[in-house]
């Protein structure tokens, strides 16, 4: 067997690939499902928190800032392990899927809050004043004037962050969430062959490469000149 054949045998074994493709495909669905949930809820919660912070009430701002700083500072894996292996000792039993969803959603919410808040603060004060001077309420001004401008500024960094965090669904493998990586590592240990891991890598590329390209496009698309 030549070196080249050994390489193909190890990483691209057709028989192994065919055998484990269905289970990895199942993992793809789990990853997609989780990612969509995390992105929708995480960005939603983060945006809501940034809006609450726009009220500029210190007793509301303080807990939001603490939440955002803590969840941006802690490695998600630490949070996942604490929630999955620690909480049962306190009588709280969460499924692996729920733990992964909650932790990554909160981490994304923390980043999204900071990004959207930065967008809100970068909208000139005159926008608030013009809107309020026509009789619009705080909420109407935020919703119709400030947030649309803030979100536009936030979209490129938000997309990058969403990709970075949904990729972390692979961390679920350590607590047994049947995502792409988990299915692949299981297949790898059964078959004693690295081909399932290559298949997983290809699956991740197919999932995330379009998103990375989309984020690049968004960056140029929204590099708009401010009026």
């Amino acid at each position: 067997m030549t070196q080249w054949e050994r390489f193909l045998e190890t990483f691209f074994n057709a028989e192994v690939l065919a055998r484990y493709a269905p289970s990895i495909l199942h993992g793809v669905w789990v990853t997609i499902e989780l990612s969509l949930l995390i992105v929708v809820v995480g960005i939603g919660v983060g945006t809501a928190l940034a809006c609450v912070r726009a009220l500029r009430r210190p007793w509301l701002t303080a807990p939001i800032v603490v939440f955002a700083d803590v969840f941006r500072a802690l490695p998600p894996l630490v949070l996942i392990l604490i929630a999955f292996f620690g909480l049962p000792n306190a009588g709280v039993f969460l499924s692996a899927f729920l733990v992964l969803f909650l932790v990554l959603t909160l981490v994304l919410a923390a980043f999204a809050e900071e990004i959207v808040w930065a967008g809100i603060t970068s909208v000139p004060k005159g926008q608030w004043e013009a809107a309020r001077s026509t009789g619009l309420t705080f909420g109407q001004t935020l919703g119709s004037v400030v947030l649309p401008q803030a979100i536009r500024l936030a979209i490129p960094p938000l997309t990058n962050r969403a990709i970075a965090i949904t990729k972390m669904t692979a961390l679920g493998t350590v607590i047994g969430v049947p995502d792409i990586l988990n299915q692949a590592t299981t297949a790898q240990s059964f078959s004693g062959n690295a081909s399932p891991l290559m298949l997983a890598a290809v699956a991740y590329l197919l999932l995330f490469l379009p998103l990375v390209i989309l984020s690049r496009w968004l960056e140029t698309r929204f590099a708009w000149r401010r009026a």
């Binding site: 004043e129 013009a130 001077s133 649309p148 401008q149 009026a227």
Partner: peptide
Amino acid sequence: LRRRIGMVFQAFNLYPH
């Protein structure tokens, strides 16, 4: 009351979006 008081600003403050 504010809608009964029109205001025009030095910097226009139109909504750019």
